[in-house]
Design a protein around this nucleic acid. Sequence first.
RNA 1: GCAGGGGUUCCCGAGUGGCCAAAGGGGGCGGGCUGUAAACCCGCUGGCUCAGCCUUCAGAGGUUCGAAUCCUCUCCCCUGCACCA
Length: 398
Amino acid sequence: MSLACRSDAGTRVDDAAVSIAELTRNAVHVLPHGGLEEKLRLGRPLRVKLGIDVTAPDVTLGNGIPLQRMAAFQREGHLGVLIVGDYTSRIGDPSGRSRERPMIDPAEIDRNAQRYFEHACTIIDADRTEVRFNSEWLSELGFAEILRLTRATTVAQLLEREDFAKRFASNAPISVSELLYPLMQAYDSVAVRADVELGGTDQLFNLLTGREVMAAYGLEPQVALTVVYLDSWDGTGMSASRGNYIGLQEPPDEQFGKTMRIPDGLLEQWYRLVMERDGVPEGEAMEAKLALARFVVARAHGEDAARRAEEHFTRVVREGRAPENVPEAELSSADPVHLPALLAEQFGVSTSEARRLITQGAVKLDGEPILDFDVPRSRLEGALVQAGKRRFVRIVTA
RNA sequence: GCAGGGGUUCCCGAGUGGCCAAAGGGGGCGGGCUGUAAACCCGCUGGCUCAGCCUUCAGAGGUUCGAAUCCUCUCCCCUGCACCA
């Protein structure tokens, strides 16, 4: 595996006025107390670990929150270590109900890891990041070694994890392999000699188990640093599996539009977590949200893209006009043209749905609603076809 | 292994022989209002050149004029009990 970005270069560590506050910004737990200060006093680049999920289709803005912490460490000269749980995901979660779920094949994991890394690099510093696959060490473990690992903790301790505790209390099943999960993750910390491990608040238990296990292996335990979760426009945590996410590398217009969709009540949280600003500027919520959207796009795609995305948003969404660059499509030779088929092809909907859109008056030809399924070719040539507010296509003659 | 409870359309969840492409809610889409916010209102939400036809209620058979609903077998999930290292 050749992930391009490994470098131990630049070991500048300012031990003095390093801002702990900056490193622990938006942190919920930093354990143990004083642990981070102690690590920093070592005067060498710290190894800051973060486990990443390569089964998900995209890297989200929510994933970006811990990545931003990693970036903060990197700015101080420390090293980020991204752990790809390829081995862990190969084991799979046996409690899942989808029996069919095929093991993700290694090639796909590689692709996803590469993509994750590229996306993450909009936030973190590629030159100070190491990407490791945990199969590298986990696949080497023999049974005796695994038993040694399990001796680092006890069932009672593992059962303290909240979801385990709940399930245990309610007699819901807990598989042994699930119980082993935290241990595998902990072993990763041993393998990469982590000084700090980052994670969402739900990871606290796993991060602390990492400390236990490291100690059992005679290593200085890592510092556990958890950060707040980012809520999405539906008020629940942003997650790739729920589909309520903004991808770090989504097209600018998408990122902009989705950001504008968040409820005003989330502005304060997003300013704090995403922009790392302490307060929302005075004035219209709308203005604050526009600034936020610009920030999100600019970080991923640059200032120019952010400006264009805002222009696009203003033009298409606020003013209801057609965008500047409308994709073009050619007509097949039929006459009259069957509109549902055209819409289905151009906008990726079923013809049944296309029919519904037409029936509901959502489809417009040059701004005029059209209610017919079949339209004369002549009427379409050169016309701007619109479905709803956001889907446009220009018909061109070949 | 034994006993019981389950598997319904994107999700939750009703439905126990015809009125079922399947209640209700969520989500999504379209529209109104607007700031692609919130709140509220209306419509749509399996597929198909669509007043009709086709494919869905874990899977395979069967009963019936007719099955998501009844029977048989299979698969899977859950709960309890047992067994074993």
